[in-house]
Design a protein around this nucleic acid. Structure first.
Length: 572
RNA sequence: GGCUAGGUAGCUCAGCUGGUUAGAGCACGUGACUCAUAAUCACGGGGUCGGGGGUUCGAGUCCCCCCCUCGCCA
């Protein structure tokens, strides 16, 4: 039995995420967690909300709420939606937790002791009316290059020229519109990533089995231009982890907080501590997942994320861990995803384009979305969501192939033999062949799931369902029952046991449907079919069952057309 | 403009270090079956593997040039 630590990239707090965000991290992470639990491994699966930074402050202000109350509320909303999608987090934490404050300050102190923190004086724009420093992108003005009136301090959206806030003509605060701005000097801490560059590169080079998407992004940041740059880890904000050197004050840094990119990944560790706290466990319980000197040496740590998050997870966070000089666990495998596009364009949180998680659940249950998203996960390149594809794939795979299999078997059995498994007959060549075929497919499925080949695993699982239909079609119990009832009984007993095997093996993808299958079989034995021959005898003759409601309904053309229009615009 | 990843059947995609008539699912056509959510199963049609050169006994698979998407960066 292995010990597997799984984290999903933590979603930002300011709003509900769309399906592209879901399929890029939380959903495949959940698939992997569920699969490994089913195989009997010790799994800890964690996620959290990323709560600090200016966007959270502004979103709270817009909602007319204090930022901490706003975050608490949005955390509850995201947690509820995660439950709706059956994301099986062992804990859903918060980067604003006390645990994360302490750990973030601890890492900063350790990095400082290691000589990896530089104090740098910077000039930054201060808004007197807003009483705050303004991040570059919250200063707008006229572009000196093209004359566009609403250029941002970091870049002009019109001519795409990269800008410095001081380049702008007539600069003003994007928050209040105030032009009462001045440039002030302010001190910030920088993580000296440059001095860790070679160690990071050697580490990345040792990860020969990582997806190309992951390593190519990391290598680019290591080698592009002047190579890996030092990065600021503090900001002049109120909302965040106060800058401290471990448990001590940091002279000259009073009133400042750590930059959100620095504290967010540390939340993976803090979240584990939150998990222990929530379950009344001592520190040793979470430390054995993270400290290689306290029992974490045998842990395999796997992270899931979209490609935009790769630089932080391959370079910045590892720099924090390595630089601390302490025996913290480094990630062993990073599974990264491309983007999911929406009907010919991009999903966009800021523009409200696409289908968002709460909307998705309001029109169909989680399993429908889980199946489509996972079986079309953007692993090798960006992939595309269209309503036509969603409709045909869902109807065919879930309703026709799997749902109908369960339906035809249980209804036939009930009508011919009543509501218990019949006793007659024995397996013949056809049955032995089915068991051999399913076994081969199952072993292939296991290999793909272990390798996190999500799309291929889905295809292999579907192929198992097809084998069930194929068998039934050639065994034809509806004909056999007329001449050789005993043989028909054996066929049905086998088919009913196959439903249980489908329930167990499909659960990582479609947990609710699996539970419904088990319930109709009046069974709660989730043992993985290592030996399929034995697994096919789990439900004995005389075992009771009931005919379930249809597992999946079909999406009609009218619904598809309706949703297509409803979600074509911008979310208000 | 630089860099990454791609351009393979109508659609969505597989094709490891080059090797028999290029594969899957969907869609389409024909047949079988009637237990089942007009479901299932079988068979079939359909591709000069973005274009052009080259290496090789042999290239979708390697090299060069060009064209086109997507993303990142300047």
């Amino acid at each position: 039995m292995a010990r597997i630590l799984i984290t999903s990239a933590i979603p930002y707090i300011n709003g509900i995420k769309h399906l592209g965000n879901l399929v890029g991290s939380q959903l495949p992470a959940d698939l992997y967690a569920r699969y490994n639990r089913a195989r009997g491994h010790e799994v800890l699966f964690l996620c959290a909300t990323d709560e600090h930074g200016t966007p959270a402050e502004l979103a709270a202000a817009k909602a007319g709420k204090p930022v901490d109350a706003y975050c608490a509320e949005m955390h509850a909303v995201q947690a509820e939606i995660a439950r709706g999608f059956r994301l099986s987090f062992d804990h859903f934490g918060r980067s604003s937790s006390a645990r994360n404050h302490v750990l973030t300050q601890h890492f900063a102190g350790a990095l400082d002791r290691a000589g990896l923190i530089a104090e740098v004086m910077e000039k930054q724009v201060y808004s007197i009316d807003d009483a705050r420093f303004l991040p570059d992108r919250y200063i707008t003005g006229t572009c000196p290059n093209c004359g566009y009136a609403s250029a941002r301090g970091d870049q002009c959206e019109n001519c795409t020229k990269q800008l410095d806030p001081t380049d702008l003509i007539n600069p003003r605060s994007a928050i209040s519109g105030s032009t009462n701005l001045e440039v002030r000097e302010t001190k910030h801490l920088f993580l000296r990533q440059r001095s860790l560059r070679d160690r990071l590169e050697a580490w990345i080079d040792s990860k020969t089995d990582w997806p190309i998407l992951t390593t190519s992004i990391a290598k680019k940041w290591l080698n592009d231009g002047d190579g890996l740059q030092d990065r600021g880890i503090t900001r002049d904000l109120h909302w965040g982890v106060p800058v401290r050197k471990g448990t001590e004050d940091w002279p000259g840094m009073e009133g400042k907080v750590f930059y959100v990119w620095f504290d967010a990944p540390i939340e993976y560790i803090a979240c584990t501590a939150e998990w222990a706290d929530a379950n009344g466990l001592p520190d040793a319980a979470w430390e054995r997942w993270w400290r290689t000197d306290k029992g974490a040496a045998d842990v395999r740590y796997v992270q899931f994320m979209g490609k935009d998050n790769v630089p932080f997870h391959t370079l910045s966070f590892p720099a924090t861990i390595m630089g601390s000089g302490e025996p913290w666990k480094l990630v062993d495998y990073i599974k990264s995803f491309n983007y999911l596009n929406y009907d010919g364009g991009q999903f966009s949180t800021s523009q409200g384009r696409g289908v968002f998680m709460d909307q998705a659940l309001s029109i169909l249950p989680a399993d429908y979305w889980r199946w489509w998203l996972l079986s079309h996960a953007p692993e090798n390149s960006d992939s595309e969501f269209t309503w036509e594809n969603f409709q045909t794939a869902t109807n065919k795979d879930l309703a026709d192939v799997l749902g109908n299999f369960v339906s035809r078997v249980t209804k036939f059995a009930a009508s011919k033999f009543g509501n218990t498994l019949p006793a007659g007959g024995t397996n013949g060549d056809r049955e032995e062949k089915l068991i051999a075929d399913i076994t081969a497919g199952l072993r292939a499925y296991e290999g793909l799931m272990a390798a996190m080949e999500v799309r291929k695993a889905a295809a292999e699982l579907r192929a198992l369902w097809v084998l069930g239909n194929e068998y039934l079609q050639s065994a034809a119990p509806w004909s056999v029952v007329k001449t050789d009832p005993d043989q028909a009984m054996a066929i049905i007993r086998l088919a009913m046991n196959l439903i249980r095997v489908f329930a167990v093996t499909s659960a990582p993808f479609i947990p609710d449907a699996s539970a419904a299958m088990m319930k109709s079989l009046d069974c709660d034995d989730w043992t993985w079919p290592d030996d399929l021959g034995l697994a096919m005898e789990t439900l004995p003759a005389g075992h009771g069952f009931s005919v379930p409601e249809n597992l999946f309904r079909k999406i009609t053309d009218e619904e598809r057309a309706d949703w297509q229009t409803r979600f074509s615009g911008i979310r208000s």
